[in-house]
Write a protein that binds this DNA or RNA. Structure first.
Length: 463
RNA sequence: GACCCUAUCGUCUAGAGGCCUAGGACAAUACCCUUUCACGGUAUGAACCCGGGUUCGAAUCCCGGUGGGGUCGCCA
């Protein structure tokens, strides 16, 4: 049996971190088993689905480089097929027409809630042997309901949570087609998973409660029931549920915030899945290792600090030219006149050991593109008369350096230190502030070398 | 409320009855490195939710409690 998995988002917003992990796991499972990964857009909620959201999801998948093998399929384009299946079910008696209005349903629900009962459809239009149905009211378009079994249990061996059994008495006859004839989610999913030959449904665990309904419909259709793996949810950094109002952001925000795509994927892979003590691994490695047995059943809290660490590891290993491109792009976005020169690439090499994000790297390289002045406060703190005097001395020595190389520059600094009878930081710190606008940097002689004679002497003027 | 899921350091997790004096990673703390800040290195502190069983033996299996979460739509 060839593995076929799918990622089936509804296009009502951006691709968020939870969706991204679901997509990653589905993708990885298909890749692991040489199977097929399908992208399906569940857009039957016409009121909330937008083309922008479809694009946002595709953009997110592209950025993460989770390529699909089939699709994207759109449910709105499969209406004829759904309607065909509904007609078959009506004919077969596994579905029936229900004329209960929304108002009646609301009243029923309110009544049941008042009695502290589980709200459910009471089956008033459900055909039963020997039962007389009321006459269909005029002027009301019926919905189609699935005739759910009333006895027995629905059970499946969830690949993450283990065996789950639900009594059919807990399930009511849910609506598979609205009064306007459009099919509903739980029905479309079933038809799609069936038609698309999905073997493994890997999705969020908010779907656990839909699963028995879907299995019952699948059974009514005589379809093979796929394997299910329900992933627990991802909580925010504060342990709270992620929502539009609270903490949920697009995966593209991580790009904007300076995270490398492979770092985000590595982090997500480890959030709810493990392979022994392994923390850092490539996607190739992940695909070889990925299995459903090591997925955590409980919810996981997102941890930005760990993501930062992983990102820093990937930045350190990343190709300088690639980093340079990212830095220039980000600097330009800030309105900084950055150019991808060999000098700037050397600065990238100098700084990439110390950046958690590409944005931090870009900020650090800002003074290598244009002169950055320290705030008045920082200047006042570091430019004492004594400090200025050392900078004047140092500038004189640097001007006389024949070969602009770190060892020679270091020598010039040391001579200045000796002549003024001060410690190294008394020169190095004001020098950093004068050159870079801030008191911290990598080894100052390296910085001097990369910055170049011209800019160094220019920035050291006026002391 | 009903049903379902879930529970190991602050966080992500290892753990399939003896390998557990509970391991790793992030974070924290200390020290080392150092020309500042980082990086890196070394070390330290830090957890099996509670109560009953089962067993020679339980973090691991069972039951109950408690906490957390999800679902109860002509949304997906």
């Amino acid at each position: 049996m060839t593995v076929r998995t799918r990622f089936a988002p509804s296009p009502t917003g951006f691709l968020h971190i939870g969706g991204a992990r679901t997509a990653l796991f589905s993708w990885a499972y298909a890749r692991r088993h040489g199977g097929t990964f399908i992208l399906r857009i569940e857009d039957t909620d016409v009121a909330r689905s937008t083309p922008e959201a479809v694009q946002a999801i595709i953009d997110g998948m592209n950025w993460l480089q989770l390529g699909h093998d089939e699709g994207p399929f759109y449910q709105m384009q499969r209406m004829d097929r759904y309607k065909e299946v509904i007609q078959q079910m009506l004919a077969a008696g596994t579905a029936y027409l229900c004329y209960t209005s929304k108002e009646e349903l609301d009243a029923l629900r309110a009544e049941q809630e008042a009695k502290k009962e589980k709200p459910r459809y009471d089956g008033r239009w459900r055909p039963e042997a020997g039962k007389t149905l009321p006459a269909p009211p005029v002027g009301i378009e019926p919905v189609v309901r699935f005739k759910n079994p009333t006895t027995g249990v629905v059970a499946w061996d969830d690949q993450v949570k283990g065996r789950i059994e639900i009594s059919n008495t807990e399930l009511d006859d849910f609506i598979i087609a609205r009064a306007d004839g459009t099919p509903t989610y739980n029905f479309c999913v079933v038809v799609d998973d069936w038609d698309m030959g999905i073997t493994h449904v890997i999705r969020g665990d908010d779907h656990v409660n839909n699963t028995p309904r879907q299995i019952n419909v699948l059974a009514a259709l005589g379809a093979t029931v796929p394997q299910y793996a329900h992933l627990s949810m991802i909580l925010g950094d504060d342990g709270q549920k992620l929502s539009k109002r609270h903490g949920a952001v697009s995966v593209m925000q991580y790009d904007e915030d300076g995270y490398l795509q492979e770092a985000v994927l590595n982090y997500l892979a480890r959030l709810g899945w493990s392979h022994g003590d392994d923390e850092l691994f490539s996607m190739e490695q992940f695909v070889q290792w990925f299995d459903l047995d090591h997925i955590t059943a409980s919810a996981a809290q997102f941890n930005t600090e760990k993501l930062n660490w992983i990102n820093a590891q990937y930045i350190k290993q990343a190709d300088n030219a690639r980093l340079l491109g990212e830095v220039v792009k980000r600097l330009k976005a800030q309105g900084v006149n950055a150019v991808a020169t060999p000098e700037l690439e050397r600065a990238v090499a100098l700084y990439k050991e110390r950046a958690n994000t590409l944005n931090e790297l870009a900020d650090a390289l800002h003074p290598f593109c244009v002169t950055v002045h320290a705030s008045a406060e920082v200047q006042a703190q570091h430019f004492s008369d004594a400090a200025k005097a050392t900078l004047v001395t140092l500038r004189g020595k640097l001007a006389g350096v024949s070969e602009w190389l770190a060892p020679n520059l270091s020598a010039a600094i040391k001579e200045t230190v000796t002549e003024h009878g001060v410690k190294m930081p008394a020169v190095a710190i004001p020098l950093r502030v004068a050159l870079l606008g801030q008191p911290q940097s990598p080894s100052i002689d390296q910085v001097l070398e990369v910055l170049g004679r011209e800019r160094v002497l220019e920035r050291l003027q006026g002391f």
